[in-house]
């Protein structure tokens, strides 16, 4: 069993959706919200909160080329810290100057500012290598995504 707060521990198989179709960024975020709901991390209201975050602050959640980290702040709509994963069949535009179009949306629900730090560090390392991102984006199913993540051994911060 992976550590409960590790990347794999926070991303159960039911929260991983591959080759999804989304017609726009709001739909893509809703799919990430569905994953958080299915994993027991958030309620439906959190999807609205993630969308409102982008409406208020802009598409800054697109943190790297092709990658959006959909999230809002800790709120009553967050049941526990968790992640979701949505790879898109057709990329979607979020309106980001440099990093559009988005091919992968990772949803984050956080109960506080710290619990998920290590998992986010692993996620950043995992997706920091373009070839690994490519391999994950072409994974045919949720089990393969989790298997690839499980094989990844993040360097321990010194």
């Amino acid at each position: 069993m992976p550590d409960k707060l590790s990347l794999l521990g926070l991303l159960p198989e039911q929260s991983v959706l591959v080759n999804a179709s989304a017609r726009d960024w709001r739909t893509a975020i809703r799919l990430a919200g569905e994953g958080l709901i299915l994993g027991g991390a958030a309620t439906a209201a959190y999807s609205d909160e993630m969308i409102a975050t982008v409406e208020q602050l802009g598409p800054y959640i697109v943190i790297a080329p092709g990658l959006a980290l959909a999230h809002s702040r800790p709120s009553p709509a967050v049941r526990r810290t968790g992640l979701s994963w949505v790879s898109l069949q057709e990329p979607v535009h979020f309106g980001h100057r440099d990093n559009d179009p988005v091919r992968l949306v990772v949803g984050l629900a956080a109960t506080d500012h710290n619990q998920h730090t290590a998992a986010l560090g692993s996620l950043a390392q995992l997706l920091g290598a373009p070839e690994r991102m490519e391999e994950l984006l072409t994974a045919p199913d949720a089990a393969t995504v989790r298997h690839l993540i499980g094989n990844f051994d993040p360097e321990v911060p010194s």
Binding site: Y60, R73, A124
Partner: peptide
């Protein structure tokens, strides 16, 4: 600095 202080700013 990020929007919420829980996601991108931590990365």
């Amino acid at each position: 600095v990020c929007g919420m202080g829980v996601g991108s700013s931590i990365i």
